[in-house]
Simulated assay, not measured.
Amino acid sequence: LEQERFELAEKAFNEMLSFIPEGGQDLIALAQYGLARVAAAKGQLNQALSLARASAKVLELVGYRYAKEVRNWLRSICQD
């Protein structure tokens, strides 16, 4: 994502989803956040919002440290 190689990033996050073991809700949520950022970069705001909201919800439920980052990112794209 930082290198703006969005197609490659999208592929990596989708691949990550295919390898996550059962019960890895936090990892699924992190992959969703990555996909949300890719979608936003590609101008797909509705998809980005949907993925980021799902990610934040799960991360907050499991108490994962990145929940705040996802919520902050969500606020930043909602202001644009």
Rank of each mutant, 00 (worst) to 15 (best):
L1M: 13
E2S: 15
E4M: 10
E4Y: 05
R5V: 00
R5A: 06
F6H: 13
E7K: 08
L8K: 13
L8M: 10
L8V: 14
E10H: 06
E10D: 07
E10T: 04
K11P: 00
K11H: 07
K11L: 09
A12D: 15
F13G: 02
F13Q: 00
F13R: 02
F13K: 03
N14L: 14
N14I: 04
E15T: 11
M16E: 14
L17K: 06
S18P: 01
S18K: 15
S18Q: 15
F19Y: 15
I20F: 08
P21S: 13
P21E: 08
P21A: 11
E22V: 12
E22A: 15
E22F: 08
G23P: 11
G23I: 12
G24K: 05
G24E: 09
Q25N: 14
Q25H: 15
Q25Y: 12
Q25T: 07
Q25P: 01
Q25W: 10
A29W: 05
A29G: 07
L30M: 13
L30D: 03
A31D: 08
A31H: 12
A31Y: 10
Q32P: 00
Y33H: 15
Y33F: 14
Y33L: 07
Y33K: 12
G34C: 12
G34P: 07
L35K: 05
L35R: 03
A36S: 12
A36R: 01
R37Q: 15
V38T: 08
V38H: 03
V38K: 00
V38G: 03
A40R: 05
K42R: 14
K42G: 02
K42F: 03
K42M: 10
G43Q: 07
Q44W: 04
L45G: 01
N46L: 10
Q47W: 00
Q47G: 05
L49M: 01
S50G: 01
L51M: 12
A52E: 06
A52G: 12
A52Q: 01
R53G: 09
R53F: 04
A54F: 02
S55K: 05
S55M: 09
S55L: 09
S55R: 04
S55A: 14
K57A: 08
V58Q: 08
V58L: 09
V58W: 04
E60G: 03
E60M: 07
E60Y: 00
E60I: 04
L61S: 11
L61N: 07
V62C: 01
V62M: 02
R65T: 09
R65F: 11
R65N: 09
Y66K: 09
Y66Q: 07
A67R: 03
A67D: 06
E69C: 06
N72E: 15
W73A: 11
W73Q: 06
W73N: 14
L74F: 10
R75F: 12
R75S: 15
S76N: 14
S76P: 02
S76I: 10
I77E: 06
I77A: 01
C78F: 01
C78S: 13
Q79I: 07
Q79T: 08
